[in-house]
Amino acid sequence: MSQVPEDLKYTRNHEWARAEADGTVTVGITDHAQETLGDLVFVEPPEEGTELRAEEACAVVESVKAASDVYSPIGGEVIQGNEALGDSPELVNSDPYGEGWILQIRPADPSELDNLLDAAAYQELVADEG
């Protein structure tokens, strides 16, 4: 059973978003997503300063199997991508909600977070996908 932390928000495309105390939002892919993808071998986060709209493709993750796009849960400006993933993409597998974070955003409209799924709704989505 994959982990779905209570304090995060989720998308239907298996990204998570965490509202930080300083008003920024950290984004990654869920435990379920990394499990489905298999061993990650390459992550390309967006460049600092990139302006994103909600649901816009913002990063590429490649596993041994395939390349997949990561979609931004909310609109805003990219503050930074996780540089550690350049050498260690496997952090997304081993710690998807911690060291395996992918990008940090300064949200244009923090209320967009309210449009996302909570942990219970996301858990249900994953269960339905079987």
Partner: peptide, 9 residues
Amino acid sequence: PLHYGSQIA
């Protein structure tokens, strides 16, 4: 099976 846990392992 594509893998039994980790393809790289």
